[in-house]
Amino acid sequence: MRKLDLVYTRLRTEERMLLDALRKRDCVVGLHQDADLVLSLDRKPWTDSQLVLMRSMSFTRSRYLAAMMEVKGSRVVNGSRAITTCGDKVQTTLALAASDLPLPWAFVGFEEDACVSEITRRGFPVVMKPVVGSWGRMVARLDSPSAAEGLLSMRFGTGSAQDHVALVQQYIDKPGHDLRVYVVGSAIGGIRRRSEHWITNTARGATAERYEVPASHAKLAEQAAAAVGGEIVAVDLLETRGGDILVNEVNHCVEFARSIEVSGIPIPEHIADYVLGVLS
C-alpha cells in the first residue's frame, strides 16, 4: 500500500480533489493541517511515509515545514528550495535571471528618493509589488511621479524593516490577458486569464479561457520551473503587444479550482500520478 502525507492550511476544493485523486489510486493519505504540526529541529523522522505533498498556502509555514521535513528524511513536493524561491519575488526574479530567461526588467530599492529617482530615469508607468504576497494583493501601477512618491512613502514609512524593500517592475502593456502554464514534472497545459483590469489574477476576477500551449511556451515554462527548483508549479507568462513572451512569476502552491472546468486539464490527476511516480 502506497502512503504519503498531505500538508494543508485549509482543505479547499483543490486539496479535496487531490485527496480524491490519490485515494482513487489506492494511496493512503495522511492529512496534516499546518497549524497543528510541531516538529523538532533534528533528523528524527516525523512520519513513516516517504513523501510529502506540500499544500500549505502559508509561505511562512510551508517553507519552514518543508525544510524541517527534508532534514528529517522526507521527500517534499514542492521542496523547500522551490518554496523559498517562489515565495519571494526578488529571489524568483533572480533565479529566472540567472537562467537567462526573458523577463520584464525589474529593480530593488531600499529608500524612497533613490527609488523615485530610478523610476523617473526609466519612465512611467511601472509596477510595484510586495516581495512576499499573492493573489495580486498590494500590487500597484505607478503612473506618475506623485503616485510613486505617495506609494513609496507608504512602503518605507510603515511596516517593519523586512517590508522596506521596493520591488519595481516594468509595466507590460498586455493584450487584455496573460498566460499561465501548468508544469507537473513537464508542461501539461495552460489557461489564458482575461480581464479588463491590468491585474489578471483569477482571484481578482479575471476569467480563465482554454489556451493551447505552443511548444515554445511549454519549453519556457519548464525552464522557469527548473530555474526555481519547482516540480509542480504554475508559470505566469506575459505577452507583449509585439508578441514577445516574458516570464512574470512562478507559483509553487498551484490553484486550479476556478479554472479546471474551462481548461479541461485534469490537474489533480496529473499531480497524483506525478507524486506517486516519485514514490515508486
Binding site: 492550511t9 485549509r10 498556502m57 502559508s58 509561505f59 511562512t60 515565495g87 512576499v132 504576497g133 499573492s134 493573489w135 494583493r137 504554475a234 507559483n251 509553487h252 502552491c253 498551484v254 490553484e255
Partner: peptide, 11 residues
Amino acid sequence: EAPEVEEDWGE
C-alpha cells in the same frame, strides 16, 4: 466562520 486570509497566504 473561516478565518481571514493571512498576509502570507497565496499560491
